[in-house]
């Protein structure tokens, strides 16, 4: 039941609700394109591509969850938000979803608006809000960054899963009656488990990048003190 939240396939949510969410997603992505264009410089362009490729690869790995009889995968919204910022980050996840829908049939094309709303918009936005708050509250140490990445990734997955419950409540093609609360509970529980896996991967990746190339981490840019004078690469005459 879980994979649904990640990739809603054709026919699960009815047409009008899908169309409303498609319009919503289109409007939000337009804002992301306008804001993201400003962010996308020579350093961020390859990073955005790699983040998207990384998310694409990682979404193919499925976590089997035996107790619930379902499997789920990672979302990558938090990783994208930390490394390339909320605007370009949401675009990265959206690109992954569009390519998956067009050529892999992963999630219906007609349901693209719903999928983008859940995973690219809700997931990334929730992650970025958490990151912005936690980075200010927590000590600026490696542990602080790790906790931030872990918490943001875990909770963003749960938030994205509840987006599906909301959409199902609005326009599910089959009336579940009172089972809807059950659906919400199952989704939240299962996604908490997936979120922990996502949190661990996000935290390790972000920590490594922050250690070796802190200049690549978007979320740390605004907090950093002015960069120390660069060490000359080639030694000149002294």
């Amino acid at each position: 039941m879980e994979t649904l939240a990640m990739h809603i396939s054709n026919g699960i949510i009815d047409g009008p609700v899908a169309a409303i969410f498609a319009a919503l997603a289109l409007a939000a992505l337009t804002v992301c394109v306008l804001r993201g264009r400003r962010d996308l410089d020579d350093r961020l362009a390859p990073m955005a591509g790699l983040v998207a490729a990384f998310i694409f690869a990682v979404q193919m790995l499925n976590f089997p969850i035996f107790t619930a009889g379902v499997s789920g995968h990672l979302l990558g919204g938090a990783l994208a938000a930390i490394l390339v910022g909320p605007w370009v980050g949401a675009l990265c996840v959206a690109v992954v979803l569009v390519v998956q829908a067009l050529i892999f049939g992963d999630g219906g094309v007609a349901m693209l608006g719903l999928n983008i709303t859940n995973m690219a918009l809700l997931g990334t936005a929730a992650a970025y809000v958490l990151i912005a708050v936690l980075l200010r509250v927590l000590p600026r140490t490696r542990a602080g960054l790790a906790v931030t990445a872990f918490v943001a990734a875990t909770l963003s997955v749960v938030v994205a899963s509840q987006g599906f419950v909301l959409e199902y409540w609005l326009g599910g093609t089959t009336d579940l009656g009172n089972n809807l609360t059950g659906l919400a509970g199952t989704m939240a529980g299962v996604h908490l488990l997936i979120g922990i896996g996502e949190g661990l991967i996000t935290a390790t990746t972000v920590l490594t990048v922050a250690k070796v190339r802190p200049d690549l981490v978007y979320a740390l840019r605004s907090l950093r003190t002015p960069a120390a004078p660069a060490v000359p690469v080639a030694g000149g005459a002294r």
């Binding site: 264009r37 998207a52 690109v95």
Partner: peptide, 28 residues
Amino acid sequence: LIVGLDRLHCPQVFTQIATFMLRYLDVL
């Protein structure tokens, strides 16, 4: 596919990220 999206007036930021994504998948 990317060329097609570009000709359908998909924003350049979007096609650029998609181009790099498909290119970097092999790198990854």
